[in-house]
Every structure is written in structure tokens, then in C-alpha cells.
């Protein structure tokens, strides 16, 4: 039994908008990155898994439970962080998270106890007794994460968890997500359009585009070395490229860098000599890796 399974899952809004287009998926536990451009169908997929939306066609299951027929059972074990605001301004974090714990079926005493623990985990202290309306965006995101964690879910669905955060807030939220997934062993799906964030926290990647699955694979397979050597110089990259070609290497200038694609063992020596001969300032030599961005720029990945 997979954590998440989808078979020909389709969601259409009206006649013309197809958010999910016969999507087939099988996902095992881990920290799963769900990437795609805005409008690729990420939020729609999460909402269908939660039973917030019903699919137009096809089927999906979470932990072996059918999303259209067993919604309440699934949702007892799922935590959800929506991308939009979803907090009442007049309640305090403690009141609200306790209430949401009880909405997941926790007894009152357990809900209170776990609220205290989980608010500490996300880093909310004295301010948890004040109304949420006065919180900063960063604090609100933490409350949203806390309410998703309060009932100790087996699956966490996070929709753009770093939305609206400043760089420091982003780092903290990503660390929190990573620790929650790795140390506590809660299977997590992080939807984001920011590939850098996905790369930092996730072990597995689902890429969707226009409602179709582009690729599903462990994240390392996206970032392997390509065999291309990047040579960055201060200027005159095109002269260097020409010099390398004259020495029998395949080289192309790319901005301030020259990309050497020949797998020749002697290429480091050749590059060194050519740079020296032209009197260039060498900034960096690096093995080029695949980048997640390549997924969406249409380049084939090995």
C-alpha cells in the first residue's frame, strides 16, 4: 500500500480549465517535493487528497483510504497547511490550535497538552496567548504549521509553507519542515514553485506541469554531475573557447563561462595552459550538475 496513489486523476473547472489531466501517481513516505509553476495543479492535487475538492474523473487514495468516500477517516491522520491565510484574528494561537486538535478527534486534555508542545516546537512562546490578528506573517505561518501538527498526523500536506516570509523566516520554516519530516518521521508533501527550497528539504521529487506528471524520482537523480566542466573567467570567454577548440576540446562560451563538454582526462591541464597563454583571470573551475530548473526548460536529464 502506497502512501498516496492516484489513477487517471482528473480535475476540470468548467469547460475549459483542466487543472489535473489523467494524473497517475504512486508515492512512498518521505519528504516529497511537489513542484510546478503557478497553476500547474499543485494546490488542486493537495485539495483532492484532502477531500476538499472532488475529482472530475479517476480516483485517488491516501494510506489506502479512498479520498471521495473516506474523507473524515483520512483527515484524522492528515495535517494541512493551506497557502492562503486561514487563521481567525480574534483567537489566540493556544485557543485556536487546541480547537483544531479537538476537531481532529483528540480528547480535550490531549489537545491542550499537544498544543503546548507543538507551539514550542514551532517556536511560539509568550505571544501564543495573544490574538493572532497581531502576529507577523512569520508567526502566522508557524501557527499554521502548529495546527497541522497538533494531532500527530501520519501525513503532512504543506502548500507553499514559505509564502510571504523574509529570507530568515524562510530558512527557519524550511529547517522546521525538514526536522519534522526527518526526525519525527512524518511523511510530508511540500508544494512549492521555488525549486531551491525543494532541493533543500526534500528527498523525493514530483514535478507536475499543466496537470500532468513530468517526473517522479529521488531528488539526487536530478542533481547528478553532468560531465560538463565549467570554466569561469573574468572576461574574453569567447577567446578562451576558441583557444580550447584549437587544442581539440569541445568548448562553447556561455556568458562569462566556457563549458567544456569533452570527457578528456587532460582537459584540466589544457584549460590551465590556455588561460595562462591568454593571460586571463580564472575565477572558478567546476563540475556542472543538473539543476532542477532543467526540468522545466525542456532539457533532457540523464
Amino acid at each position: 500500500m502506497s502512501l498516496i496513489e492516484a489513477r487517471a486523476l482528473t480535475k476540470r473547472y468548467g469547460e475549459h480549465v483542466t487543472a489535473l489531466d489523467a494524473l497517475d501517481l504512486e508515492v512512498e513516505p518521505g519528504i516529497i517535493g511537489l513542484v510546478g509553476a503557478n497553476g500547474a495543479g499543485k494546490s488542486t492535487l493537495l485539495k483532492i487528497l484532502l477531500g476538499l475538492l472532488s475529482p472530475t474523473d479517476g480516483s485517488a487514495s491516501v494510506m489506502g483510504l479512498d479520498v471521495t468516500r473516506q474523507g473524515p477517516e483520512i483527515r484524522q491522520f492528515v495535517g494541512y497547511l493551506p497557502e492562503h491565510d486561514c487563521l481567525p484574528p480574534d483567537a489566540s494561537a493556544t485557543e485556536f490550535v487546541t480547537h483544531m486538535g479537538r476537531m481532529s478527534g483528540l480528547p480535550a486534555a490531549a489537545a491542550r497538552e499537544r498544543t503546548a508542545e507543538v507551539l514550542r516546537h514551532v517556536g511560539l512562546y509568550e505571544e501564543r496567548y495573544r490574538p493572532i490578528g497581531g502576529y507577523s506573517t512569520g508567526m502566522k505561518q508557524r501557527v499554521k504549521l502548529a495546527q497541522a501538527l497538533v494531532h500527530d498526523p501520519k501525513l503532512l500536506l504543506l502548500d507553499e509553507p514559505t509564502n510571504g516570509l523574509d529570507p530568515a523566516g524562510r530558512d527557519e520554516m524550511l529547517d522546521l519542515v525538514k526536522r519534522t519530516g526527518t526526525e519525527f518521521g512524518i511523511a510530508t508533501v511540500v508544494a512549492s514553485h521555488l525549486l531551491g527550497e525543494i532541493e533543500r528539504v526534500c528527498t523525493f521529487l514530483l514535478a507536475i506541469d499543466a496537470g500532468k506528471l513530468l517526473r517522479a524520482a529521488p531528488i539526487v537523480s536530478f542533481t547528478e554531475r553532468t560531465g560538463t566542466l565549467g570554466v569561469e573567467v573574468e572576461d574574453r570567454a569567447d577567446e578562451l573557447a576558441a583557444a580550447l577548440m584549437a587544442r581539440g576540446l569541445e568548448a562553447t562560451a556561455d556568458g562569462r563561462a566556457v563549458l567544456v563538454t569533452s570527457p578528456d582526462e587532460r582537459r584540466y591541464d589544457v584549460v590551465r595552459d590556455a588561460v595562462d597563454e591568454l593571460g586571463l583571470a580564472l575565477v572558478r573551475l567546476e563540475h556542472k550538475r543538473h539543476r532542477l530548473e532543467d526540468l522545466f526548460s525542456g532539457e533532457a536529464i540523464g
Partner: peptide, 14 residues
């Protein structure tokens, strides 16, 4: 208004 509904609907009720 505050979209708390999406949290309620993602909890253990219909």
C-alpha cells in the same frame, strides 16, 4: 471571511 473553512473542511468532518 478568514478562510478558516478550509481548515475545518480538512479535519475529521464532512
Amino acid at each position: 471571511r478568514n478562510r478558516v473553512l478550509s481548515l475545518y473542511f480538512s479535519h475529521a468532518l464532512e
